[in-house]
Design a protein around this nucleic acid. Sequence first.
DNA 1: TATAGTATTTATCAGTTGATAGAAATATGA
DNA 2: TCATATTTCTATCAACTGATAAATACTATA
Lengths: 210, 210
Amino acid sequence: MSGRQRKNVLHREAEEAQETRRMIVQVARRLFMEYGYRAITTRQIADACGLTQPALYHYFKDKQDLYTAMAQEELARTHAGLERIVRRNEHIEERLRRAAAYLVGATQHDHNLMIHDIRYELSAEARALLDREFRANMIAPLAELFEQGQRDGQLRDEQHGGVNPVACAYLFLSYVSYILASGQRDVVISGESAPVQQAVSILLHGLANP
Amino acid sequence: MSGRQRKNVLHREAEEAQETRRMIVQVARRLFMEYGYRAITTRQIADACGLTQPALYHYFKDKQDLYTAMAQEELARTHAGLERIVRRNEHIEERLRRAAAYLVGATQHDHNLMIHDIRYELSAEARALLDREFRANMIAPLAELFEQGQRDGQLRDEQHGGVNPVACAYLFLSYVSYILASGQRDVVISGESAPVQQAVSILLHGLANP
DNA sequence: TATAGTATTTATCAGTTGATAGAAATATGA
DNA sequence: TCATATTTCTATCAACTGATAAATACTATA
């Protein structure tokens, strides 16, 4: 067998191994994100994968390692989705609607639970890592969107009773939390759910009578 | 000993027992509300009370019973506090600031965690009970506040692009979540924290330039 | 002081959890 | 077919969990 063929086979082997690994991460994501780190056991994850519990330890050092890998992947995916939306050439309100719809629909889970797990269930190192990634991948793109809006004059900036963009980003995530908590995530009208449109409208224009 | 004296002593005994019970609930509240139902063990609670773990079972049927008692008490306390604020004769914005400050300061914990625990960690019966109490004690008073604002014409009602009061209440709680998550809960200016003032202002008037 | 009722402890259990060791299966290439 | 490396399994562990039973300490009363 030639060196090239050998290399291809090794590559395929590595790919299959990575395939299993990816599957585990995907299953873990569904479970961890819905029920939380503490409530999900490594056996539940293995069962849902059709594996035995010790098999997981061939791919991950320990439970926390699996959670961290999952969270990093999830944050990277979310980052890509948000960046795509932020770069669109649309009105800021439309982009915010898209961002909210994306977070509600594509990820389908409440990031407050993730924040809690990061803060309370992980070691100091893992916490520091994921905290950094959370800010870089979720907060930063959203903050940039709000900053653009302030520069364009569509949003009030800090000199005119506005709020700094990073705080806006956190606030926005709380809104998404509300949409998920209100349990109306299924009501979808022409690609966007009514609660999303409503929430973004309130965030921009407020509840008060003009 | 007279009948009256006997009654007094029995009363005092009962009071002391209830005193211990109250202390347990208070300690449990601090721990459950910060770390979540799953993460806190009955031994941790007992240790923090200066008791052994089985002693808890003299006052509560099981762990879930303790959590339920704690949550009910917490919700009742919050209800009282919110009702007091709602009935004040002040502008709606001021009352919302008070309500937010109360939830952030007096209770000091993120109700999203409680909602998660109620939804995922308890039996169907306990869940149904606490769900009902949550709506009656937290959502209802806040919804009434928003409804008053809509009747007064200070807030937009549903006919003018407004939102139904119950949805407003949920949204308001998400705001409080944000204030707590942003970790600025300690910045207090003349009785009210800056984030609270800011958050309520945004909720009413929005982020957009007028 | 003896009694009764309450509160708390010691001792213990069965089930679950995350994790490890080592055997077995599987696939690959010579 | 044999040797090798990877993947997965069986078996098992120690620690921890919620919970129970029974003994003991405590307190007020008679």
